[in-house]
Nucleic acid binder design. Structure first.
Lengths: 220, 220
DNA sequence: CTTATTTTTTAGGTATCTCTAATTAAATTT
DNA sequence: AAATTTAATTAGAGATACCTAAAAAATAAG
């Protein structure tokens, strides 16, 4: 079973939406996630249904099948491995990798991915802290919460970001909130939800609730 | 000016055919080089003509324009850099790289190619000994002749192969004729054109004229 | 130098993936 | 519950890239 580049992109979007959003994924959601029109999505859903990577009943909803899940995770695996390559080996900044990885993920060659994985030393997380599925599609995700949800005096380690847009990532670079940083919540302002944290036991950082909501932490 | 993947493939084929074949490139030549039908080629030639990467007069012939040359060399540069990456870093055998490089060459990202080039230490030749054009499309090609054309007692160094098919490359691996090997012609049999050479001053090797014709040598 | 052959191009059709506009189904309001 | 709004789908059409079959041009043969 082989998917086209377009089909892979749709399936990946569906996977991501059903992971985050919980309840069923709507045609409109997919359209805006993938920057296309709902009419195109309907068309593609029918095709993905025929290929049995999703279960689809029109006007009703959809669900990824185990086959679809496997294929989506394969694409995500490739995407994240390439991101590691770009950052670790080619010294891309973490806000520059997405577009290129978006192209590289569609290269078809199981051998290439095996070799790349080995070459990168079997990384478990990508530069944004997202877990890399293994060759069988298994993901070891760490239990993590938004920084925003931590209480005062709680400690932890930044392990990932929710938003991977260049604007957000560059902001984090600027203020020094990198993945792996050990943090502690010093204060939370009730009025606006903003938060003050201590980074690596030496630097104080204030951030808005919008920012704190997009930083994921492994509490200790 | 941007080319689609298909357009890049046609242009690359045209470039290679006009380099080797000397005289004008025919529709049928392109069709068989690219594994497609002449009718499809005609179609594409019209489009490439409109995009001004070739000069095209129907029923008459075509010629690559300076623009087309630049774009073709860019694609070839990418292809060969990826081949170096696959062999040097991911330990692909030199007969396994072509298919994958054929996909990777179409990734669009000038930054990626710059970084890859630097990461590979600005290689000047690919694993088959073919020169890698620089960022401006300049190629430093070495004057080289087919092993078949050398005279008895002439010495040289294997620098490239004409045929890059896995079957041929695996044969070369088997007999130990690698790129960089220093060789000397010991004997040439007039009857069948076969040739006997000395490799690295220690190994005698017999080969048919078909093989000797596909090995390129820099004479010393 | 006219006929036959080969080469090349055009015409018409298929598949993929996209769009806009129109229609249909589902969800909300009143 | 009927009317309205929103969401989703179908209809029809465009772009790319391919195909087969038919026509046209160029080349080769008698």
């Amino acid at each position: 079973m082989e998917l086209t580049t377009a089909e892979e992109n749709y399936l990946k979007a569906i996977y991501h939406l059903s992971e985050e959003g919980k309840k069923s994924v709507s045609t409109n959601d997919i359209a805006s996630a993938i920057q296309t029109k709902p009419a195109s999505v309907s068309d593609m859903l029918r095709k993905l249904g025929e290929k049995e990577v999703i279960q689809y009943r029109k006007y009703y909803g959809l669900q990824i099948t185990p086959l679809g899940m496997r294929l989506a995770l394969q694409t995500i695996r490739k995407h994240r491995l390439w991101e590691v390559f770009l950052v670790d080996k080619l010294h891309f900044a973490w806000d520059e990798v997405h577009e290129v990885a978006e192209q590289l993920e569609h290269i078809q060659s199981p051998l290439l991915i095996e070799r790349l994985d080995a070459y990168l030393n079997y990384p478990k997380f990508d530069p944004h802290g997202d877990p890399i599925p293994d060759a069988f599609g298994d993901v070891r995700s760490r239990p993590r919460i938004a920084l925003q949800e931590m209480g005062i005096d709680q400690s932890g380690q930044i392990v990932a970001v929710k938003d991977s847009s260049p604007a957000f990532l560059r902001y984090l670079d600027k203020v020094g909130a990198y993945i792996g940083a050990r943090i502690k919540v010093l204060d939370k302002v009730e009025f606006d939800g903003s938060i003050e944290i201590l980074v690596d036991q030496k630097k104080n950082l204030f951030m808005s609730k919008e920012v704190a909501n997009n930083i994921l932490v492994l509490t200790t």
